[in-house]
Design a binder for these strands. Structure first.
Lengths: 214, 214
DNA sequence: TGAATCGACTTTGTATGCAGACGATACATC
DNA sequence: GATGTATCGTCTGCATACAAAGTCGATTCA
């Protein structure tokens, strides 16, 4: 499947948002993006359309587009859905996970290796969870979950946030992975649920804090 | 909130797909669409980007874009997700439904009033289910569910299909609505699940049939 | 007869240019 | 001093235009 310049740009912008190059609320000027990626505004506009459809950016017609700032309600809802979908998927996936999947998960346990090849904490976290679900092929699920995660990608670009979240997140990943390796599906799913709840707590608190100062 | 020409076109194309004007597998030629909607190809391309992100169309870079043909696996997965999300939503919604919501649902019970103001069976069905969820405000859920339904919108544009599905579908809607009116959340949700399973059966069978002749 | 190759036509992908909308700043008015 | 209004500059939205890629059919050769 050939790839389109436009789609590459959409991915690049998404990664830049994850990395915090374009922070939450930042306006995205078409002309600047065009210069940055060495194209005209047309493919940029199309990339922005894709991102808008995924909910990563907010478009104010005629006025401008901005990195979307999810509020605490939205974040809570996103995790409400993930808690419904992901444990089910994990339970189905675990019996079919192979050594290669466990290696991949192992390699992505630690979420804060920002310097490791320029991989953002968000991308690292994504890799870990992707590895857990590698046992089954559920493209529609995968796409929805990925989209939900992407919506809050901008929130992960915050060193201060990871300073407190890194250790517990690593421990939770470790526990989930160990349970998965041992084939304890029941335990792994309940650990995953708890992990998601913790993430929800941390992120809604972060968002609520920001909402206060406005 | 002002509306963009591009977004109006995206909606219009979606509706045309629901109505069967652009059947499943049909190529969507940018130039023709541009003439049809009286604009240049630029806003068309952007509308197509939106539809592609929603999974309504498949883009083959450089070659063309086509109305996507969901296979039976995808359809099964779509309903797998809906069965997880919608009952939960319905249970939360029922206690907060008002007379106006029931009227709206009542008006959309029958899915096949194609001549009624040009509303497609798909749109009618959508209205019914939207009315059921009117009690709560869960924008992220709403968006996902709408997106999942839209993915299979093209399958609804088939008179032969409705010839057999119309009566049972109406009866199921009736039963769900009655249970909702009576405040019987538990019964309503289990009826909804059964309704979804029946729809899944009908649609996967339809898709499997098409897959056979290829 | 069947397969492979070439070429014309169609369609897509992107750049450039222009008109109009939006927002900010400065000014006038209460 | 605060509020409303005009004006300017910036940015967006879209049309036109051109270049590249792909498709399909005709033609040729085995």
């Amino acid at each position: 499947m050939k790839k389109l310049r436009t789609d590459e740009i959409a991915d690049a912008i998404k990664i830049d948002i994850e990395k915090g190059i374009y922070p939450i609320g930042e306006p995205l000027i078409q002309e600047s993006l065009a210069r940055r990626y060495g194209v005209s505004r047309i493919p940029i506009r199309e990339a922005l359309k894709t991102l808008a459809a995924e909910g990563v950016i907010d478009v104010h017609p005629g006025a401008g587009t901005f990195v979307s700032t999810p509020n605490s309600d939205e974040i809570a809802e996103i995790f409400e859905i993930r808690v419904q979908l992901e444990p089910h998927l994990l339970r189905l996936s675990i019996p079919r996970l192979g050594p290669r999947d466990f290696e991949a998960a192992e390699a992505a346990l630690e979420p804060t290796l920002k310097l490791n090849g320029g991989v953002s904490p968000f991308a690292q976290d994504q890799r870990f969870h992707d590895a857990l679900f590698a046992g089954i092929d559920r493209p529609v699920h995968a796409r929805i979950i990925r989209s939900l995660r992407t919506k809050i990608a901008g929130l992960y670009a915050d060193d201060l946030f990871w300073a407190t979240r890194s250790a517990p997140c690593l421990a939770e990943h470790r526990a989930i992975l160990d349970a998965a390796k041992a084939g304890k599906e029941r335990e792994a799913t309940s650990l995953l649920i708890r992990h998601l709840m913790h993430a929800r707590e941390a992120l809604t608190a972060k968002a609520a804090l920001r909402e206060q100062f406005r």
